[in-house]
Write a protein that binds this DNA or RNA. Sequence first.
DNA 1: TAAATTTTCCGTAGATCAACCGTATTTTAA
DNA 2: TTAAAATACGGTTGATCTACGGAAAATTTA
Lengths: 197, 197
Amino acid sequence: MALTKKQKEVLDFITEYVRENGFSPTQKEIQSNFGFKSLGSVQDYIKYLTNGGFLMNDSHSVRGLLPSAVQQNSEEIPLLGNVAAGVPIEAIENTDTISVPVHMLGRGSHYALKVKGESMIEEGILSGDIAIIKHANDAQNGQIVVAVVENETTLKRYFKRAKQIELHPANKTMKPIIVKDKECEIRGLLVGLIRSY
Amino acid sequence: MALTKKQKEVLDFITEYVRENGFSPTQKEIQSNFGFKSLGSVQDYIKYLTNGGFLMNDSHSVRGLLPSAVQQNSEEIPLLGNVAAGVPIEAIENTDTISVPVHMLGRGSHYALKVKGESMIEEGILSGDIAIIKHANDAQNGQIVVAVVENETTLKRYFKRAKQIELHPANKTMKPIIVKDKECEIRGLLVGLIRSY
DNA sequence: TAAATTTTCCGTAGATCAACCGTATTTTAA
DNA sequence: TTAAAATACGGTTGATCTACGGAAAATTTA
């Protein structure tokens, strides 16, 4: 189940080769890359890697090696705390993390916040949901942002007007927060949502 | 089952090593890192950490240590298609998968469906969301289920009455589906939700 | 405080495995 | 039909892991 150092080197070589050429190396190419004097050595590595599930070997076919797509499909991002809980994000040193599907994550760095309150309920964002946030300092009109106003962290839809910034909740019982530019600090953009029942 | 200071140091060393190299250190490497004069010392730490559940040891294999913290915390489940799209689940042979945080997944097998339509909008389930479903054949009252009625797959809240089954949407503009027991087949329970913006 | 227990360490002997080599045989593909 | 490529052995060596027994130091318990 576990790789040794040399086994990982061999696997990495094969993986790289496939990435660059679109087909796997022959056993002889592997042999000469590592300077083995016998093909048996290559065979042994193929056997180990195959048994461990790191490699597929289309038996008896030439260049039939295929690294198992053990590609990272998810990533750990820090769960920094609650949004709309009145606590600035930086204050939290908790090192909790949460696993997130990579397709949610584009470029840039990300973090997660637990949603508290009903202010975005009409957008389908419920109290208790985990919001996946991309670090950002400004936003486009209409985007859902994490913003800090008067030392409170909130999740709202963002609109920049001529002389003010409006943060719209998605809840008919609540009113937009309207502040001057400098009183509102954007901390990130909502890129995903995870809910557990 | 608490760790002593030294035990934590050893565990941290192993964890860091695995994170950086992709394989675990040998016992000898651990020995020399901490300056032990005997491998037996390392053995004792491995034993203690293993018994406490902080470490897995793939016995008799070289570099076979795996800290629990590095273990997989997400899993691939099949994305079978759309719910509320009029297509029975089994018909779909698509092999798409999606990566899901394990904390959503309890016992049993799971699959994912893409939500179509607005029927659960008041529960915060929007069209386009990915619903994480646990395979099941029956449900408790009030649970959100995947059910097949008249060859249509739908996501609704489930209520079993004396002589009928009611499938409640969460949308004021829609009415409950009311059918006899045998006309409604339950295919799974909603356990999680994933949304990308 | 004294006794019991646990943790931490040492050393050695023996078992197992990884990492090689070499040769012979089978299969694939041009 | 052949050369290239892939399998199938068997065997060697050193690295690595396991199993013990013992003993000092630190902690816990009585």
